[in-house]
Design a protein around this nucleic acid. Structure first.
Length: 824
RNA sequence: GCGAGAGUGGCGGAAUUGGUAGACGCGCGGGGCUUAGGACCCCGUGGUUUUAGUAAACCGUGGGGGUUCGAGUCCCCCCUCUCGCACCA
């Protein structure tokens, strides 16, 4: 019998149409049912889907479909992170309007996602550039402003000369280049909007306890990013004026080893100190040199220590010693207090500085096993030890000494214990066009006035062209910036900066619960039901920024009393990158493969299956053309299994159940075993092995239907289980074959198959016979064999006997149902 | 430098609590079917050695030690790679 061809295209078109018109994946709020909110990080629409999207969304789709089949009420939405620089870059290079470019790309990626057969509730789709959406992004800004969490300040910003905008610290790569365009970022002082995320540093840290379903490495990365440290603030008095300068240190135990004092080049005291010393020019030149460099350049490990003496001294409160004040390149103005006590003996940076400028090195911590001599030191000693030359503290172990010194500082009013974070406030304003306008109006008499809620959204005009050099047209467009002051109705000027796109994506998962609500960012009842997200899935590249910002937003919402939880994502899965020839796919490397080609040639099911079969989700995976062919071969094999092996049996080629047949029992056992294994693996997100189990089942069915006749009932069970288990992975072919077999309804609405424990256990098992832990023989025995009988049989094995020989048997270890180890 | 993770065939990768290392797939080899096949079905496939062959022995999870009847898995030391942070006082 010849099977019809496996025509993936016809099948896909047919079922996409039916699923969508039937509203198969529409999610309804059903309070009596248990929900599962499955969310995959929404895409930035920069073109058609790429392989990374397919990998990511295929994962999410299997999870969503599996939960649906398990009986949960599943929300699985999709939208677009649609504001941002690439749209403007496209506008600059090809003249197309960012809005048009974005809408076209949404159209392209949506078409690919539909073809891939993802079970999205498309009725909830939105883009962050829709006014109905960014209205609420602006609303969030107002809430932040009301709570004092949005503020404007002069800040050393990362200016990207090529993008013509300020970047967040997070958007500057480790080598000091722009995340988007790669050009070297320059520092620039500007008045910018910030979100006060630092107010939440402690909670962002503490609440990680709740995030048991997050990968450890993501938590670690966030923890490092927040960078909490314990130490002390200490006031040093300026010799010339008696003015106090506060420093922060994590090593109060080394206070007696201070031999100089450092200020950041930008520290406000630098100018005043140097005035009248005759060193003004030197200092000015130094600062000029520093200001031309980014934080990265100045703080890279390779950069040489550099500084200038400021002509003044400070007094160490603990021992009354006077030490000189310098300004130094490696001191950061925005960490701690911008001033540092220098202990060259116990800090490598200070050590290098001291050696370069001939400053004294004073040992105040002695290692337990040898003695430091300051003149002979080639590097700082930063490890634990006992305090020496430290007055009353001498002899104290340094960890204990930290506390003692802090007590002393506090008792004398010289300083206090303090905690610092590396986390900086989030710079959210962008001097760009394609983003959500910041809803603020500046008035000469009222100052900064927020736009009233009822006046939102502040519409971003979509009919403007980018100005000269790709700059934002907003500051030049009177119809945009001219606005009456909401307070006094006098003439005002609108803020023309837009928000960082990370603001847009920090709350989109809330919007999906009620995307058409025009009275609130989200409906509280829908939110109570659907949130938090049960399973969030996305790339590891968002481990810090997006996830930290989203956590921050959720906590603010919680403080506003709008929600009753403070963590948005209960479980997180970070999937690896798709590479080709070991490298990230990129146009410049010419190693890009696009889903579209494979969708045409091999079909959506093949592509999905291959992505999931390649390896564990969290590992990065290298694309292989041969591998994807293999996936297609397997699906063809499933197709033929139904048409060439199963249908003929249904039509009378099989035998009536001869109940004694071990072959039939073995087939049933394999079926049930496979259901058990696949179910287990899906719970663990071990998709690659889940697929391999189905492959084994298919191999088993081919084996069963070769030669001897098959029992139609046994075969039915096996074939239907195959389709049922495979359906979340390859929805089209399974739905098609399901209907070919005349089964009722959609396979995607069937309950997840159950298995019979008893049947899943094979009748016969293999027992390994070891002598001294080495495999010497194998036995096929009944699964119900007892331990004693196992031992007897093992002892009788000829090969085992051979190795035992004349030796004395010291011990026999029996692992029931597994092995017998004879120790001689 | 600090932190996290990982090293298993020619390749991607499998191996509950320590219990048959290499599932499944790719690739490769052989056979069948075929005018033919790159389609399909079946078989084989870690290495070395011995054997005409059936078979068998030894070696084998980055390297070296250890615990154990038994170690890819546990412990100690070392090497390599990937990722993140990186002068944060």
């Amino acid at each position: 019998m010849t099977a019809p061809d496996y025509d993936h295209r016809a099948i896909e078109n047919k079922w996409i149409e039916r699923w969508e018109s039937g509203g198969y994946y529409r999610a309804e709020l059903q309070p009596e049912r248990t929900k599962r909110y499955v969310l995959v990080m929404f895409p930035y629409p920069s073109g058609p889907a790429h392989m990374g999207h397919v990998a990511n969304y295929s994962l999410g789709d299997v999870v969503a479909r599996y939960y649906t089949r398990k009986g949960y009420n599943v929300l699985h939405p999709m939208g677009y992170d649609a504001f941002g620089l690439p749209a403007e870059n496209a506008a600059i290079s090809s003249g197309v309007h960012p809005s048009e470019w974005t809408r076209e790309n949404i159209r392209l990626i949506r078409a690919d996602l539909r073809r891939l057969g993802y079970a999205y509730d498309w009725s909830r789709e939105f883009a962050t550039c829709d006014p109905e959406y960014y209205r609420w992004t602006q609303w969030f800004f107002l809430k932040m402003y009301e709570r004092g969490l949005a503020y404007k300040a002069d800040a050393a910003t990362n200016w990207c000369p090529s993008c013509g905008t300020v970047l967040a610290n997070e958007q500057v790569l480790a080598d000091g280049s722009c995340e988007r365009c790669g050009s070297l970022v320059q520092p620039r002082w500007l008045n910018q909007w910030f979100f006060k995320i630092t107010d939440y540093a402690e909670r962002l840290l503490d609440d990680m306890e709740e995030l048991e379903g997050w990968p450890e490495r993501v938590l670690t990365m966030q923890r490092n990013w927040i960078g909490k440290s314990h130490g002390a603030d200490v006031d040093f008095e300026l010799v010339s004026t008696g003015e106090k300068i506060r420093i922060y240190t994590t090593r109060p135990d080394t206070l007696y080893g201070v031999t100089f004092f450092l200020l950041a080049p930008e520290h406000p005291l630098v100018d005043r100190l140097v005035a009248g010393t005759g060193r003004e020019r030197e200092v000015r030149e130094f600062r000029q040199r520093m200001s031309g460099r980014t934080e990265f350049e100045r703080t890279s490990l390779e950069a040489e220590k550099d500084g200038v003496f400021l002509g003044d001294h400070v007094v160490n409160p603990l021992n009354g010693e006077q030490v000189p004040v310098y300004t130094a390149n490696f001191v950061l103005v925005d960490y701690g207090t911008g001033a540092v006590m220098a202990v060259p003996a116990h800090d490598q940076r200070d050590f290098e500085f001291a050696r370069k400028y001939g400053l004294p090195v004073k040992v105040v911590i002695q290692p337990p096993d040898y003695e430091l001599v300051s003149d002979e030191m080639t590097e700082a000693y930063e490890d634990p030890g006992a305090m020496v030359a430290s007055g009353q503290f001498s002899g104290t172990p340094n960890e204990q000494g930290k506390q003692a010194v802090c007590d002393c500082l506090e008792e004398n009013g010289w300083g206090k214990r303090s905690i610092n974070y590396r986390l900086r406030d989030w710079l959210v304003s962008r001097q760009r066009y394609w983003g959500a306008p910041i809803p603020v109006i500046y008035c000469d008499s009222c100052g900064t006035v927020p736009v009233p809620e009822e006046d939102l959204p502040v519409i971003l005009p979509e009919d403007l062209l980018l100005a000269e050099g790709g700059k934002s047209p907003l500051p030049l467009e009177e119809s945009f910036y001219a606005a009456p002051c909401p307070r006094c109705a006098g003439p005002g000027r609108r803020e023309t900066d837009t928000m960082d796109t990370f603001v847009d994506s920090s709350w989109y998962y809330f919007r999906f619960v009620s995307p058409r609500d025009d009275t609130a960012p989200f409906d509280s009842e829908a939110c109570r039901y659907w949130m938090p997200v049960d399973q969030y899935i996305g790339g590891i590249e968002h481990a810090i920024l997006h996830l930290l910002y989203s956590r921050f937003f959720t906590k603010v919402l919680s403080d506003l009393g709008l929600i009753g939880f403070s963590e948005p994502f209960s479980n997180l899965l970070c999937q690896g990158m798709i590479t080709r020839d070991g490298a990230k796919m990129s146009k410049s490397k010419g190693n890009v493969v696009t889903p579209g080609d494979y969708l045409d040639r091999l079909g959506a099911d093949t592509l999905r299956l291959y992505m999931l079969f390649m390896g564990p989700p969290e590992l990065s995976k290298d694309w292989s053309d041969q591998g994807v062919e293999g996936a297609h071969r397997f699906l063809s094999r499933v197709w033929r299994m139904v048409h060439e092996r199963y249908l003929p049996v249904l039509q009378g080629a099989g035998v009536v159940n001869d109940s004694g047949g071990a072959r039939h029992r073995e087939m049933r056992s394999l079926t049930h075993r496979t259901i058990a294994s696949v179910t287990h693996d899906l719970e663990e997100f071990a998709f690659n092995t889940a697929v391999s189990f189905v492959m084994e089942l298919v191999n088993g069915i081919y084996h069963y239907t070769s030669g001897e006749k098959a029992d139609p009932d046994v075969l039915s069970e096996a074939v239907l289980a195959t389709l049922s288990l495979l359906a979340p992975f390859t929805p089209f072919i399974c739905e098609e074959l399901w209907s070919v077999l005349g089964e009722e309804g959609s396979i995607h609405k069937q309950p997840w198959p159950a298995y019979d424990e008893e049947l899943a256990r094979p009748e016969e098992i293999t027992v390994v016979v070891q002598v001294n832990g080495r495999v010497r023989d194998k036995l096929r025995v009944s699964a119900h064999i007892g331990a004693l009988e196992m031992e007897e049989k093992a002892m009788a094995c000829p090969n085992a006997r051979k190795f035992i020989g004349e030796n004395e048997i010291r011990k026999v270890i029996v692992v029931p149902g597994k092995l017998v180890n004879i120790v001689i």
